[in-house]
Design a protein around this nucleic acid. Structure first.
Lengths: 211, 211
DNA sequence: GTCTATACATGGATAGAC
DNA sequence: GTCTATCCATGTATAGAC
C-alpha cells in the first residue's frame, strides 16, 4: 500500500498505541474543523495529551496531517461500493451509485475532508494526488468498466461518460454542502439522481440505436 | 451590487488609488499562491509598499481578503458567456459552453481562486456563498433557461440537467487541475466536451420521443 | 498617506524532570 | 513515553515621525 506518511511508530506497546489513537482522533476533529492552520496546542488539548506526546508519536505537524489523511482515505474507501452492486441492471446500478455518492453529503467528516484536501492541494499536492489515486480514479474506473460491459448501454467513450456521472455527483456535494449553496440554490438530491439516471439511460439507449 | 467587503476607502486621490491598486495586485498574487495563511508582510513586500500602508487602506487581513475575492468575482464574471451564444443551436451551444468552462483550466488565477474559495469555505462561508450567488447560480440558470426554451431538447427537469452539465465541467477542472489529477488520470478535454454534447443531445432527443 | 520601528500574541518545536 | 515549562520565529496590528 502506497503511503506518504512518514511518522515514526514508537514501541507500539498497548498503552502507547492508545495514546496514538487518542491523538489521531483529536487531530481528526481539529483539522477537519479548522483546517491545516489548526494549532498543535489545540490538537493536543482536544486529544487530552501534552503537546510533547504528540511530537513523540509524530515527527512534525505535516507528518501528523499526512497520517491523518491517509487514515481517513482508508476509512472512506472501505465504506464505498461493494461488489454486488455490479450485478444490478443499468437503471438500478446508476441509481445506486448516485445514492451512495450523495449520501456522503450527510457525513460531516467526508465533507470536511474533501474541503481540506482541495484547500491544501496547493501547499500539499501529494495529498490531493493520493486522494485521486485512491478514491477518484478507482471509482471512475469501476464505473467505466460497468458501462463498457453492460450491453443495455453503448457509449462511444465510456471513460468520459463515467467522469460526467462522477463529476456531476461530486460537484453537487461541493456546491451544496462545501460551498453552502443549499440555501441559495436548493435542490433535492432525488431530482439530481433521477435526472442522472434518465440522462445516462436515454443517451445509452439512443447511442445504441445510432450505432 | 451586493458585496461583503467592508474596507474603508481613504481619500481616493489619484495617488492613493494607485497604492490601493498595487496592494490589491500584490495581495492577488500572494493569496492565490499561498492561501489565506499568507502573511501581511509578504503581501506588503509583493505590493512594494510598507505594511502600514496596507492597513491604511484595509481595516484588517480579512477585509483585504474579502475585497480581493469580490474583485476577482467581478473580473471572471465579465469574462463569462456573452448573450449571442444563446442564439446558437443546441449542439453548438452545449459545445460552446463546455469549451468556455474548460478553457478556464489554463487560467492559473481562476484555478487558484476556486481552490481558495473552497479551501476557506469553512472559515469564511460568506465568500463561498458570494461565489455561488454570483457565478454558479446565474450560470446554471442561463443554462437551464436555454434547455427549457430549446425545442430540440425536452427534459423533464431542465434545472437538474443544467446542474449535471455544469457539475461535470467544474469537477473536471477540480480533479484535473486543482487536485493535480491530470498526471494520474489524464484525459483530453475534447473527449469530455464531445461526450457531454453527445449525452445531452441523445438524451434530449430520446426524452422528446418518449413524451 | 506613507514610512520605520515595535508591541503583543500565537504557534511550532524542544529541554529536562519523572 | 509522558509531562511541564520554555525557546524562538513568525504574524497581526499599531505607534510615531515625516
Amino acid at each position: 500500500m502506497k503511503t506518504i506518511s512518514d511518522e515514526q511508530k514508537p514501541s507500539l506497546s498497548p498503552r502507547g498505541a492508545e495514546k496514538r489513537e487518542k491523538i489521531l482522533e483529536g487531530a481528526l476533529r481539529v483539522f477537519l474543523a479548522q483546517g491545516y492552520s489548526a494549532s498543535m496546542d489545540a490538537i493536543a488539548a482536544e486529544a487530552g495529551v501534552a503537546k510533547q506526546t504528540v511530537y513523540s508519536h509524530f515527527k512534525d505537524k505535516h507528518s501528523l496531517f499526512s497520517a491523518l489523511i491517509d487514515r481517513l482515505l482508508d476509512h472512506f474507501l472501505t465504506a464505498g461500493m461493494t461488489q454486488e452492486i455490479l450485478l444490478l441492471d443499468a437503471p438500478s446500478f446508476i441509481r445506486k451509485v448516485a445514492q451512495i455518492s450523495l449520501s456522503r453529503m450527510d457525513d460531516w467528516e467526508y465533507v470536511s475532508l474533501l474541503r481540506l484536501i482541495i484547500g491544501e492541494s496547493g501547499r500539499f499536492p501529494e495529498l490531493s494526488e493520493l486522494y485521486v489515486a485512491r478514491m477518484v480514479k478507482p471509482g471512475i474506473q469501476k464505473l467505466a468498466d460497468y458501462l463498457r460491459a453492460n450491453d443495455q448501454l453503448r457509449f462511444s467513450d465510456p471513460d468520459a461518460v463515467a467522469r460526467i456521472i462522477h463529476g456531476s455527483l461530486i460537484n453537487f456535494v461541493i456546491s451544496q454542502e462545501i460551498m453552502h449553496g443549499k440555501h441559495a440554490m436548493p435542490m433535492p438530491r432525488e431530482r439530481m439522481i433521477n435526472s442522472i439516471v434518465d440522462l445516462v439511460l436515454f443517451a445509452g439507449e439512443a447511442s445504441k440505436q445510432a450505432s
